[in-house]
Nucleic acid binder design. Structure first.
Length: 466
DNA sequence: CTAGGGTTAG
């Protein structure tokens, strides 16, 4: 900017900063800060938005100290914080679980004469739901109501998700029936996800049928939820097939779609298929998130290619890609399982150097490996660190596989009706079977799912796997 | 041009 003697106006500046802080690169906030100072020296007068954008950037990097410093600097530029400023910080702190700081910040906010708005309350509801403090979340809703603000669809969906995450689907359903606002696609996807996760696929489909009838077509989120269920049940081929069909129907497959399939194939020891999909995703210019990188890294580890995974990590670091605790934990556990403890310790030192705090997964892996190696004196040290994380030792639950056998007569009829495009009749038979408690086989579910996708108007043929 | 909800990894 300086070099070209180009003086940006405020709008240009804010737009640019906003794009930067929302990009996935970890160094973007540093770049944004430089840009901000350049703009200042070129005479740009920042407004509250400018600061809100920068504060968002600092919060994304969990740098609350910088965020708060900026709030205090605002007055030097004749700007004052607004609801957005505080809500941004509150949300970030809620996500970190720093509830005492949240209360403190709320006081500070009130001290400046600002009152919580609906978004503020929704952020707090979300914060409590994440901690599984459902009672407190409900109390916030009472509070907002007393404050003259009725809960909106965001509030309800957040609370609904809170119930679902605790397995309280019946409470979620009751809330959905009680709420006086129409459910939206978020409501439906939340419920569908809850049903899929608890193995109630039939109910998930009923919900999909309902959402379709209410005018909400299943979207890529709905698709990804179903794909995930199929992959967990070790049916990646079926999931893939569904993905191809969705692509042909105009669904824009995303990074999550690919990541889910990649996980599915690795799970079934088909690493070659997984890697092919990875390449396909890259060729399409779809940028993987840190989660999807972690899926790949874990997949490689599971295929016995731990060294290749470590190379992948170094490649990510070189290119400045985001890395997180999970990335390191994945590699550390793999090394531990192979008895390569010293390498695991080296990685732990490396992660600490990057300000990534080892957590219960890290210590758990280390403790197990030390125990196995009979290094009892060191076990104690890491066991206490494990306890310090305040978490119970994670035990990996067994995955409950859905019954694939089922009633073949009804299943075949449903599949046949779907093939002939008679989805209404298929759904009717499906609901009848459900009512009678007749379990159906997987393929009936898949054929029906394809039906839901088909009823969606084809937009364009994009992003479909070959 | 600024804040909040649904999908994916250990």
């Amino acid at each position: 900017m300086k070099r070209h003697r180009f003086a940006p106006n405020l709008l240009t500046c804010n737009t640019l900063l906003n794009a930067l802080v929302h990009s996935s690169s970890s160094s973007s906030i540093t770049l944004a800060s430089h840009l901000f100072h350049d703009a200042l020296s070129l005479g740009v007068k920042p407004n509250t938005n400018t600061f809100n954008i920068l504060i968002y950037g600092h919060c994304s990097g969990n740098n609350f100290h910088h965020a708060r410093t900026l709030i205090h600097k605002m007055s030097h530029f004749s700007c004052s914080p607004d609801n957005i400023t505080y809500n941004t910080l509150l949300d970030a702190m809620c996500k970190k679980g720093h509830l005492s700081q949240v209360r403190e910040l709320l006081q500070e906010m009130k001290g400046t004469g600002l009152s919580p708005n609906r978004n503020t309350y929704n952020i707090l509801v979300h914060g409590y739901c994440r901690l599984k403090w459902l009672k407190e979340a409900a109390q916030v809703i009472d509070l907002m109501t007393k404050d003259g603000m009725l809960p909106d669809i965001w509030t309800y969906n957040t609370m609904l998700r809170g119930f679902c995450d605790e397995g309280k689907i019946e409470d979620a359903l009751r809330l959905r029936d009680e709420m006086e606002i129409s459910p939206d696609r978020f409501t439906y996807n939340t419920m569908i996800n809850a049903y899929c996760k608890t193995g109630r696929l039939g109910e998930a489909y009923r919900m999909m049928d309902e959402m379709t009838r209410k005018g909400f077509k299943p979207d890529v989120f709905t698709l990804n939820i179903v794909l995930h269920t199929l992959c967990m049940e070790k049916k990646p081929e079926v999931a893939y097939d569904l993905t191809v069909k969705a692509g042909k129907r105009g669904y824009i497959l995303d990074e999550v779609t690919y990541g889910t399939l990649i996980m599915g194939y690795f799970k079934c020891e088909q690493g070659d298929r997984a890697l092919k999909l990875w390449d396909e995703m890259r060729e399409k210019g779809i940028a993987p998130s840190v989660v999807t990188y972690n899926t790949l890294i874990r997949g490689l580890c599971l295929s016995g290619k731990t060294d290749q995974s470590v190379d992948k990590l170094n490649e990510l670091l070189e290119k400045g890609n985001p890395i997180d605790v999970v990335t390191y934990n994945t590699l550390i556990s793999s090394l531990c399982k192979e008895g390569r403890l010293e390498e695991a310790f080296n990685l732990m030192t490396e992660m600490e150097g990057k300000k990534l705090e080892p957590d219960q997964y890290t210590y758990n892996a280390i403790v197990n490996a030390l125990t196995h190696a009979g290094r009892t004196d060191e076990v104690e040290k890491f066991t206490s660190k494990l306890l310090e994380t305040g978490q119970d030792v994670k035990t990996h639950g067994t995955s409950q596989e859905h019954d694939v056998s089922g009633d073949n007569t009804n299943s075949e009829q449903i599949s046949g009706l779907c093939t002939r495009g008679k989805y209404k009749e298929a759904m009717k038979l499906f609901l009848e079977s459900e009512q009678k408690g007749v379990s159906l086989n997987k393929y009936a579910y898949i054929k029906l799912m394809d039906g839901f996708l088909k009823r969606r108007k084809s937009i364009s043929k994009v992003a479909q796997p070959n």
